[in-house]
Write a protein that binds this DNA or RNA. Sequence first.
DNA 1: ATACATAGTATCTAATAAGATACTATTGGG
DNA 2: CCCAATAGTATCTTATTAGATACTATGTAT
Lengths: 115, 115
Amino acid sequence: MEAEKDLFGKCPYMTAQKVLSGKWSIMILYHLGKKTMRFGELQRQLPDLTQSTLTKQLRALEENGLIERKIYPQVPPKVEYSLSDIGIKFKKVLVELAIWGGEYIETLKDKADRP
Amino acid sequence: MEAEKDLFGKCPYMTAQKVLSGKWSIMILYHLGKKTMRFGELQRQLPDLTQSTLTKQLRALEENGLIERKIYPQVPPKVEYSLSDIGIKFKKVLVELAIWGGEYIETLKDKADRP
DNA sequence: ATACATAGTATCTAATAAGATACTATTGGG
DNA sequence: CCCAATAGTATCTTATTAGATACTATGTAT
């Protein structure tokens, strides 16, 4: 698969950077980290991206093995997205990222307080 | 400053995603996390990006407050790059990212072993 | 027969980012 | 006077991403 080939043998940082490159990847992983969700629910959690963009981001994450897609043979369709094993392991990164992001926002506020 | 305004009040994940969006940001932060470096040394560590690209990435990181740029009034010029306070705090994220990236690469190898 | 719900596709456009290449400024040393 | 060393700029081109918009498929309920 395309996605795998060019990630092979690279350093962990480059690999991580590549996998996280989509503009919404972190947000999507965060939401799916809370619970498995259907497409529509995920979309409601992320009202700022369009359906086609969400589809593209999900496909990229799926190709890279971070999430899984389960199709129920129903009409109207039901498709559930969840974190894969390696996706679940990514939650540890998310924890640190959230802490750091909070601190970062604080530093911005500090700078704004006394300009 | 532009970079600050539109990050304000956002959630930590969105903020983090934005700051890390450059293709080389994580690699640069990793190298500067090891030690303060001059422009040329950094470039030697990252032979895959051109001078102009490196300059752009460094400027973006500086605008976002992650790194600091110290100019020595010399000829030929000497400019040192280092992590800012909030940049240093990012090292905790890097640690988790490296662990996860390593695990991720392993899963790719596993998949390749038995296709 | 028609409408509805869900999870999409297909195109096209616009915005952003990255990369290639060539050029600049300064000044101490030969 | 000319060269080397360092850290850039300035342009232009290309590639990658994201976003907008309109369309599709299908079984059930009315």
